[in-house]
Amino acid sequence: MTPADEARTTGQSGLRERKKRETRVALSQAAIRLCVLHGWADVTVDQIAAEADVSVRTFRNYFSGKAEAIAAAHLERMLRIADDLLGRPAGEPLWDSLLHAVLGQFVPAESPASRNAPQNERWREGVRLMLAEPALAGEIVKTNAAAQQELTRAVAQRTGTDAERDVYPKLVAAAVSAGTAVAVEHSLRADEATPLGAVLAQVFEQLTAGLPVP
């Protein structure tokens, strides 16, 4: 095989993987959207596939059910956070880079002012109900473990530590995972609509400070 053929094969393989990832994301987003708007019990795999404009067979090629499809969104978001972290300026403090990366994925395409806008109450309630589904809990635990591994590798690369032997990148990844989960839950369950971006900023401010006692 010539170098040109190898490059062409590599490019085709990369394109296939990108299309697979895009399909996974589309299915996951469709599952979340439908379950939030219509309720967990009233959404079927057939509806999710139709919403994503694919066949049910295609859905089954990626996910075993809607719980796995919904949980996949968390892994995809953490993959993007890891990518964003590695793309931040080398001289930027780690926790500043992490905050920028997390905000970019949890509060995308918003200005600082729009992060303070009240959230749609119907959507917030739908997300609360969806996350309370027992069928989703186990999938989220599995996905979170994989997500932390990806972020651990990114933190290790950013800090020059070893993802397998050193505690530090694992601890940072676990703190980011727990911190974002706390922020999401706090934002969703607050008596008044609380902008997620503001809660995330508060969480990372406290993590950066070493969690001082209030």
Rank of each mutant, 00 (worst) to 15 (best):
R158P: 04
A7M: 07
G179Y: 06
L103G: 05
R158Y: 02
T10R: 13
R122Y: 05
I32C: 01
F63A: 11
F106H: 09
R57I: 14
R57K: 13
A175K: 00
M78D: 11
A201D: 05
Q47N: 09
A67N: 13
S187W: 08
R122N: 03
Q12H: 09
H100V: 11
W40F: 10
I81M: 10
T208I: 05
V107E: 12
S28E: 14
L79I: 03
R158N: 12
A113R: 03
E121I: 10
D53M: 09
L129M: 14
W123M: 08
F59C: 10
G87M: 09
A175V: 06
L129Y: 02
A101F: 06
S55C: 10
T44S: 15
E76N: 03
A154V: 02
L99S: 04
G91Q: 11
V167R: 07
P93F: 14
R77V: 02
E133G: 07
L131D: 07
Q202E: 10
G179C: 06
V141N: 08
D42V: 01
A52H: 08
A178N: 11
Y62E: 11
R122D: 12
E164C: 00
R88K: 04
R128L: 13
H74Y: 14
D191T: 15
A69E: 00
V43L: 07
